[in-house]
Design a protein around this nucleic acid. Structure first.
Lengths: 252, 252
DNA sequence: AGAATACACGCATAAACGTGCAGCAACGTG
DNA sequence: CACGTTGCTGCACGTTTATGCGTGTATTCT
């Protein structure tokens, strides 16, 4: 294996896994740790990664930040994402909200799925690049840094030009009384707009969201088609179903 | 075997396997490594491949995937990016093209720089999330997977609504005769539109771009404010300056 | 605090590299 | 046919680069 090839490989692994361990790579590639360390040192000098004790992480702080947030309840997120991905019919059009849970949905999509994805999240768009059959439409506008999605008048206007079968809504709180909430007013408005452009809206609710509430309401509970959870019994879920809200999967 | 035949064969292998090893090829074809190296040197000079220690990899960043491109000439890219970043005045508005070189520009920006960035690249937008003072405006549209930027009618329309002081243009070829070129017609049109929205347009030309040419012309050389290089002497640069093209930094 | 691990640095080795030179074949010209 | 030119090839030489090992230092874990 050429040295240059090896470095490409390191970058690929970094992107795919969010981190690499020098020792493991040395064993995997059958070369000394010194060489791996030298590679990582050079890549770091080129601004392509950051060294950490034991290995390296991707350079892009945006991705690293996401990697950290992805460590919150990863199993729950993954289960929710898998259930959401299964709802996407081949040939259909789906709007994907921003956030780590929707990012997990993209990762749960079959590589060859034939569908149209509309999103206001550059991160989601970038994650869909390796899906050759997926048509991606990005809604432009001012970038709201906190959640890395476009918001504001321009984004809302762009959203009015589209229509979809499904919308997967990400929120920070799902509460029996306060409904579906998030931390920013502009963002809430954008999510509301997107919900209006899709025939069906499903909320992605990983465990830590259930029972939580944030400052701004996106929608009341009754205005979404259903809430997708990870299926583990939960008192908030019980309260929701008690109020007639559709929760997937149906609790036992 | 004819020399010309052999070179075709090298290119075929490069395309098929993503890399070639000089030693292996010499053994395989029954000729000396020197000849292989000479071939690879010539192919590299013609912009058809890139030499790496031990062999060569395909040149056309168009053929290699996005991840691999980041490791092409990282030093040159970084120098070009640093020079470009230095041109951005605090408070100004700049349009950033997609691509790995412009991504390097973002990484070269001071974290606290106060400016407005307009881009049609979700990757660039995501990379700007950690810059709290940078206002980011994302141009929406259909995502062109190959270079991970938005293209097409919607993107062009969105671009017409903006105006900027600077545009940093990324291309795949900078050639004294063929001008500034890229590998896709839609993308070329989008780049041209963006150039029309900025007072000044600078081309980011890392070493491997100089002297190369792709299928579609973005602009003739005379229609940009200047070309930013990494400052190492280069015959293409000499030819460009001879034609009156502004090249930064000025060669000695 | 002590052990274990990861790290940077220097050194030696081997491989790959570029350059200059010579041999050789193909070609064109007179 | 004789001759010089040109281009391709392989070899020899010195240089550069990549790699692995040993040593001592820094960092982390227990």
């Amino acid at each position: 294996m050429l040295a240059a090839e090896r470095r490409d490989y390191l970058l690929t692994r970094l992107r795919a896994e969010g981190s690499v361990v020098a020792k493991d790579l040395a064993a995997e590639l059958g070369i000394s740790e010194d060489s791996i360390r030298r590679d990582l040192r050079d890549l770091a000098a080129a601004g392509l990664c950051h060294r950490v004790y034991g290995g390296a992480v991707p350079a892009s702080p945006a991705l690293a930040d996401y990697a950290n947030r992805e460590s919150v309840e990863p199993d729950s997120k993954r289960r929710v994402a898998a259930r959401a991905a299964a709802l996407i019919q081949p040939g259909s059009t789906v709007i994907l909200d921003g956030g780590t849970t929707t990012l997990a949905v993209v990762q749960a999509l079959p590589a060859e799925l034939d569908c149209t994805v509309i999103t206001h999240s550059p991160t989601i768009a970038a994650a869909l690049v390796p899906h050759p059959r997926a048509e991606v439409f990005l809604l432009g506008g001012r970038l709201f840094k906190h959640s890395a999605v476009t918001c504001g008048a321009a984004a809302a206007e762009a959203a009015h030009g589209v229509a979809a079968d499904l919308f997967f809504l990400g929120v920070t709180g799902v509460h029996p009384v306060h409904g579906l909430t998030t931390g920013d007013a502009d963002e809430a408005a954008m999510k509301r707009t997107l919900a209006g452009r899709a025939a069906d809206t499903y909320v992605l609710a990983s465990t830590e969201k259930l029972g939580a509430a944030s400052r701004y309401q996106v929608l009341p509970l009754g205005e979404v088609t259903g809430i997708i959870t990870d299926g583990t019994p939960n008192e908030t879920v019980a309260a929701l179903t008690g109020k007639g809200v559709a929760v997937l999967p149906r609790q036992v």
